[in-house]
Design a protein around this nucleic acid. Structure first.
Lengths: 160, 160
DNA sequence: GCCCTAATTGATATATTGTATCGATCCCTT
DNA sequence: AAGGGATCGATACAATATATCAATTAGGGC
């Protein structure tokens, strides 16, 4: 999220918008900025709040949802459906194809960590999925777990 | 879900409640019945509707949520957080330990299919998770994909 | 059997997340 | 400059979930 250079990502996004025939408007820049600069996954309403935090802008949640939908189509962001939150894709400015992404999500505090699974594990998932008639699994995987901090602090079980 | 015998599951649940010192009340029986007999994952409000469908019962959604929480603690059911729906655990009446469960969820139509991953794939997930500081991943895995029917019918991409 | 206590339920309000709709505005193309 | 599609504003509403507190019910000891 903040490992990549802000300007690089923003201009890459702008280029991809132009190539896709859509506009990279002020609203859209605001939302992408917030997501690039966030070090955690954010809900749509949290994104709206952050857009409105330090300016005279009035970003309605409705617009955030519209822009998030657009960004998902463009593969600029991922929705973490387990957490109902959104994160910036770490490969916006990469020229190569969209990678698989795997996210660990803490069942207690909802902390999110991005990991890289070995290819074999991913292949095993693909195989199991196609055996069940699912022709394509999403390149994105959400895994619910329990982060070190929560594990340490108290013993309440992960809701399975 | 309906591969297991209704009576077997209900009485196993009753036994586990007694052992856990909680009551297996009429309300709770209603909810579990609905989930056992459902062949698809249901939302909390859908469960309430089905409870109220063919009787003079008036199950409020509030009660459904309370009972679902309880059942999750007892490992009677799973919440599919990607779909915001609930399914009966297929191992309520098993004496052995709670198995891993993996659910494929169609990103288009939300159809749910339960699969069994090979141990190696699960181990790979566990390893990757602990490398990232997640001490325990949930035994349940939700995988978003695209079911055969949706793949066939139209070409809209899975939201990644 | 009766009472005490804790578990369970009822009832209501409210928070959070997300979708639908329709008119206004902006901006590119001609 | 005008037409038309993309974008945005504004409002309403649906779906999912939590908080709270009073009322009721059910077991366990006497």
């Amino acid at each position: 999220m903040s490992m990549v250079d802000y300007e690089t990502v923003m201009s890459a996004a702008e280029q991809k918008c132009i190539q896709g025939g859509i506009r990279f408007t002020k609203r859209r820049k605001q939302v992408l900025s917030v997501l690039i600069e966030a070090d955690v996954a954010l809900s749509a309403y949290e994104i709206a709040e952050r857009c409105n935090a330090d300016s005279d802008s009035n970003m309605p949640a409705m617009s955030v949802y519209r822009i998030l939908d657009l960004f998902q189509e463009q593969n600029f962001i991922h929705k973490l459906e387990i957490a109902n939150k959104y994160v910036c894709c770490s490969h916006i400015s990469c020229s190569h194809e969209h990678d698989e992404s795997q996210f660990l999500i803490c069942g207690s505090c909802r902390h999110v960590e991005e990991i890289n699974l070995c290819e074999d594990a991913v292949k095993a998932l693909q195989t199991a999925a196609s055996a069940a008639g699912f022709s394509a699994i999403s390149p994105q995987l959400e895994i619910k777990g329990r982060c070190a901090q929560c594990e340490q602090s108290e013993g309440k079980a992960v809701t399975s």
